[in-house]
Amino acid sequence: MSKLRLLFVKEAQASYISHLDLMRTFQRVFPRTELEIKHTQGFHPHPILSIVLPLPVGQQSDCELLDFEVTQESNGRGIAEKLNTGMPTGIRVLDCYAATRPIRELAFLQADLELLYDGGVPQGAVEALQALFAREEIIIEKRTKRKEQAQVDIAPMLRSVDLHAGDKAIYATVVVQAQNPGLNPQLLEKAIAAHLPALTPDFVRVRRRRIMDENGEDFR
């Protein structure tokens, strides 16, 4: 029996595949390998698969992780290639290896944001946003799991924000807390809309770039 981990890319059309559908997609490609996924015991056995930090629908990522257990002894070599023969466009497994590091050591994630302004980036926008994200407290309204509106301060979950302006977009590289609690980088758009409504972008693209441990090293 082995515990393995996949590192995969989710981009293009595949960024619209929901978490549940992604799990199903992976379940269907595993028979292409010689590995047998361990199933839960019980009346309705289901495969033991878990996607570590589910990516919000519509975002892209270079660094998704999926943990799973197999009944055989395996170090994962050769598995990525086999899985990739059955994937939809936009999902690409980069690596498969023994899952040794516990997930709790995953501390931060880095994402690139494109804040699109169809009419051109407003004057002074970069400076204003920089000032916003440097505040001690950034309150936004967020819907809770119980569908109630709640006030959340995102400032403590925001590690760094680097901004630079292009022609019709501001490009942001942000580092946010990954878990307990994690921050969805897309919420920066909400923060702008709440505090600097005139600078609300027309659209925001998000792409996860790195996942890191407490020391800022790549988490694998």
Binding site: Q13, A14, Y16, I17, V57, G58, M87, T89, G90, F203
Partner: peptide
């Protein structure tokens, strides 16, 4: 791209399936 975040089950509208 701009419509998809607002509609239910956007994966229906993008293709790219295996």
């Amino acid at each position: 791209e701009r419509i998809l975040p607002r509609v239910q089950k956007p994966a229906r509208y993008v293709g790219g399936e295996y």
